[in-house]
């Protein structure tokens, strides 16, 4: 008897709590509607569309199973743009992260004007990629460009056709992107470095460690969590590069600087092959998720040591 009243009481209390908590859902409702409509649904829908020979004007779409994926695996252009994208991503992420950490280490100890430098170094990050494109075209131009100006007029070197050479075009786009984006990881690293207790460095100094040694033994292991975050976000951003090649080189010469997302964009919005384009996006997403997981586990292990 006592037990049943208690359970009835807790039941009604639970019911009351639930009723009391129900309006709380209203707070997350707007976000979750958008989240469901523009994120969850498109993910599922994208996978579904990739199984069709999707044409925009048709009423009934033609189901073709995995044919898009089979074609994709045999698509030479896809492999080429995937290779380009990896090359671009690796150059950009490596230099971006290295440069950002180096500059952050230099700016960590405030000195006269260090704050100004931080502001200056972040400034390119505020520009629109369209502006980066306009500047980039003229920086790398083989006839009138700034780089070739210094190379020929000041160093007396030869004119280099930066954007016309299949081997140089991706490094040129990478350097442009680094110029544009390294400020953000720099800011994150500065904040990360400030979280490392200063007395560790003092102790190392007393023990006679060199700057390089304390960088390797103290800074590097302790910055690992920040590094993990920076590398993963940089990877995700640069693997989906689009506008820099789109504006500066239009993917050329040939396909030498075409990126996966640019290929996806053209497949969908220039040739209207939505099904095939969807299979590109699914494969890109899978590759990115796998690499992200690998990065996480690899760097987790190093961070724990």
């Amino acid at each position: 008897m006592a037990i049943s009243t208690a359970s009835a009481g807790s039941k009604s209390r639970r019911w009351k709590t639930l009723r009391d908590q129900l309006p709380n859902y209203l707070f997350i409702l707007p976000q979750f509607i958008l989240f469901a409509v523009f994120l969850l649904y498109p993910i599922a829908r994208g996978m579904q569309i990739s199984l069709f020979d999707w044409k925009i004007m048709l009423k009934d779409q033609h189901f073709i199973g995995l044919a898009n994926y089979e074609a994709l695996l045999k698509d030479k252009v896809f492999w080429e743009v995937l290779g380009n994208t990896f090359k671009f991503m690796i150059i950009t992420v490596t230099i971006n992260v290295g440069l950002a950490l180096l500059v952050a280490s230099g700016l960590k100890h405030g000195f006269f004007g260090s704050e100004f430098l931080r502001v200056l170094f972040y400034a390119p990050g505020l520009l629109s990629v369209a502006v980066i494109g306009i500047i980039g075209i003229r920086v790398w131009d083989s006839q009138l460009g700034i780089i070739n100006y210094y190379l020929t007029s000041i160093l007396g070197g030869p004119r280099v056709s930066w954007l016309g050479d299949t081997r140089l075009v991706i490094p040129a786009l990478s350097i442009t992107t680094i110029w544009w984006t390294f400020g953000f990881p720099m800011l994150v690293f500065i904040a990360g470095l400030h979280n490392i207790p200063e007395n560790l460095y003092e102790a190392a100094k007393i023990d006679g460690a060199s700057t390089l040694q304390s960088f390797r033994r103290i800074t590097l292991p302790l910055i690992m969590p920040t590094m993990l975050f920076v590398v993963v976000t940089q990877f995700i951003a640069h693997m989906q590069v689009f506008a820099q090649p789109y504006i500066i080189t239009a993917g050329g010469p040939g396909n030498a600087s075409r990126s996966v997302v640019q290929y996806l964009y053209e497949t969908a919005w220039k040739y209207f092959r939505y099904g095939y384009a969807s299979s590109i996006s699914v494969v890109l997403a899978l590759i990115m998720i796998v690499v992200t997981v690998i990065l996480f586990s690899a760097m987790r292990n190093r961070a724990e040591y």
């Binding site: 989240f35 409509v37 523009f38 994120l39 969850l40 649904y41 498109p42 993910i43 829908r45 994208g46 996978m47 569309i49 925009i56 995700i236 693997m239 989906q240 996966v260 997302v261 996806l264 969908a268 939505y274 384009a277 969807s278 996006s281 699914v282 890109l284 997403a285 990115m288 998720i289 992200t292």
Partner: peptide, 20 residues
């Protein structure tokens, strides 16, 4: 669920979001 969605690259949502 929100955390998980950070892992998903935007590229996959482009076409369905456009069609919608």
């Amino acid at each position: 669920l929100l955390l998980f969605s950070l892992m998903i690259p935007v590229a996959i949502t482009l076409i369905p979001a456009f069609l919608l």
